[in-house]
Write a protein that binds this DNA or RNA. Sequence first.
DNA 1: AACATATGTAACTTATAAATTACGTAAAGG
DNA 2: CCTTTACGTAATTTATAAGTTACATATGTT
Lengths: 66, 66
Amino acid sequence: MKNRIKITRIMLNMNQKELAKQVGVTRQTIGLIEKGEYNPTLKLCMAIAKALDKTLDELFWEVDDE
Amino acid sequence: MKNRIKITRIMLNMNQKELAKQVGVTRQTIGLIEKGEYNPTLKLCMAIAKALDKTLDELFWEVDDE
DNA sequence: AACATATGTAACTTATAAATTACGTAAAGG
DNA sequence: CCTTTACGTAATTTATAAGTTACATATGTT
């Protein structure tokens, strides 16, 4: 489950802790999702997208399985 | 977690069983997701989107919480 | 040197997505 | 009438997303 969360977050000068707080999960969960080791729920994906001012497609589409 | 899966599926003349088979889940899981009672994983959302020839945004974006 | 911030990651627990089984209704066809 | 197809849904189990706690490193700063 690769994605563009990390690069987007860094471009917004946001750290993992702040993103985690905004979307209501822990710092560790954000770290694992960014690393592609988690398969997050749709609800969480949407919360992350909104926190980063992106859409689902911009963060998650066509970045998967390689 | 509302979405546009059901209407998209019907427009493709596909039944729940066939979609379920294509994405590797059960008919019941598709039914509950269509009804908005499940919060599916990103992986499953992407499988459904590809099976219906749509993107994540087309099926799930801005359909949520009301 | 000591301390704070940001991140990676591992072990274990808890919450919940998804599977399984089973029952129901409604429509179409024989 | 009976059977099949498509769907809704409930109860229980299983798999896994996410939480918690803890320890690690690298960087910066005082």
